[in-house]
Amino acid sequence: MIGRHRHLIGLEELDRGEILQVLQLAASMKEVLRRPLKKVPTLRGKAVVNLFFEASTRTRSSFETAAKILSADALNWTAAGSSVSKGETLVDTARNLEAMRPDVLVIRHAASGAPRLVAERVGCAVVNAGDGAHEHPSQGLLDAFTLAEHFTRAAGGGPEAAPDFGLLAGKTVAIVGDVSHSRVARSGLHCLPKLGAKVRVCGPPTMIPAGIERMGAEVHHALPDAVKGADAVMMLRIQHERIGDPLIPGTREYSKFWGLNARKAEEWLSPGACILHPGPINRGVELAPEVADGPRSVILDQVQNGVAVRMAVLYLLAGGGEAHV
């Protein structure tokens, strides 16, 4: 259980206390990643099924690694080459997998709302690993974790200091790119303001959804304004696979106006501002290689923190924390 919740569908439903519950446990779990022996028997005998209807390497291997470190059995099921191509429906697939008695079902699907539909029809816990343009809650949590860790280091904490999540209060995070198709941006918008951070969004007008101000975002259409004074900048990928009609004339023009290279980062960003990216990076489009690999980048920290956050999520939903009903 995460607070009152048996599933993790989105960060919209989670309140500040529930978000902090996961983040603080993740800080504990990160300790295990630093050990010479990265394996604990905590979830021995529990089973985690990764049900992925969309391509993913990072998220799926992150959930799989998290399950294995906690000694849970992880089964990966991908849509390619499965019975989905034979016409099986989402709910049928999920219920067939559920008959194998998993404790947690981790779902990625191109349709927004797919994990919730499954959660209403199965008995095990469901984790949303990204649904359409809706939410990607574990990514939102690992971004918050990584930001807190960066701010803790900037405030003089050592490289292994426990992140102080209170430091997110009053910070400004700029999310740049294809916000309208980004479940990462949406989960960030449901998470960061609850921890006291301000969020700006920036991108071509065709990529900024109408009414996003109501989610607490400050809208910018020029990159220099959006990143000015920001404590962190999150660059998003153009989701070619979700875009039917082109929303931008071309990637070269996109890169010119909304991409970051070393010169722009140097001129426009605050000296201590860090750069996040949920991956995969289109190098040379939204981020120049020298920025992605540069000293401001916390992109690989995000990947490592993703494992710790997913360990915390699996622990809480697979029977740790509170007793089952």
Partner: peptide, 22 residues
């Protein structure tokens, strides 16, 4: 902390410290 046999019944999240045998 993560090796306990009563995790599910303790009702609270474990606080994990370093295990360090070099």
């Amino acid at each position: 902390a993560l090796y306990r046999d009563d995790l599910a019944s303790r009702g609270s999240a474990p606080v994990v410290g370093p295990t360090d045998i070099r």
